[in-house]
Amino acid sequence: MKTYHDIASDGGSDVIGQVTAQRARLEDRLSLVDHVVAVMSGKGGVGKSTITFVLAEALAERAWCVGIVDADINGPSIAQMTGVRTHVPVLTPGGVMPPENREGIRVMSMDLFLAQEAAPVLWEASTQDEAYTWRPMVEMGALRELIADTEWGPLDVLLVDLPPGADRLPNLASLLPRLSGVVVVTGPTSVSQVAVERSIGMASRVARVPVIGLVENMSAYICPACGAAELLDSNVGDAEALATRHGVPFLGHVPFDRNLALAADTGEPFLERYAGSMAGRAIIDISRKVARFLTR
């Protein structure tokens, strides 16, 4: 009886060759990108995408050429936050030209392909039963296409906005072996910080991706009338202590700012108008630390 290794070919499909070609295409595309940085959190709802959006904005203000790929295939939000949700990507000889927002940030997201904003992301199949067996593979394939088939052009940094979950980073790291680092976002609650501890462990021990640092989002509430910062009742965690405990840099606290929430909802740049606000200053400081890490 013949074994697998006795078979000289796979009948002409050359599956290995095709998968290798997919990887080569990805590597070619990223050869013009200086740094790839993931933004992750172990917990949903901590404002990861918002931080990605304003970090991109702050880096663009520093004259960096920035792209964002929305890796949240099932809950994309970056296209709306950057104000490009209604744009149609354009096919060029080099790939698909991503839309740019007002600040020149190039964006690629699943949202750009969906007819209806609130429609669930489903893939054609003879049945959706037992989709758990193949759905993760399709989603990774979709993410690969979003990165590899987009004509990013030369970028200083490509930010990857990951969906929630500690397991997401190792998957991304196997798709993109040359990740420069990861920014971890947490909220002020101890629940989100426990989840984030798992993410930091996953980044450093499993994915072996450098942790650029930890950001605490929604750390306080800014009164729109007087501008005073007030800690939220739920603010019982200590993000700085968490960072110290894990030996990762603490990048800063970003207070809850209704203007930031509005900017993210309407697709308007935040720093253009509110760079001097407490949240704006915090974000600019965080971007400076991220830039320093990447250019060290």
Partner: peptide, 14 residues
Amino acid sequence: PMEMLRSRLQGRRE
């Protein structure tokens, strides 16, 4: 480019 997204995504833009 974007072969899978353009061929297999349900509810995609026209």
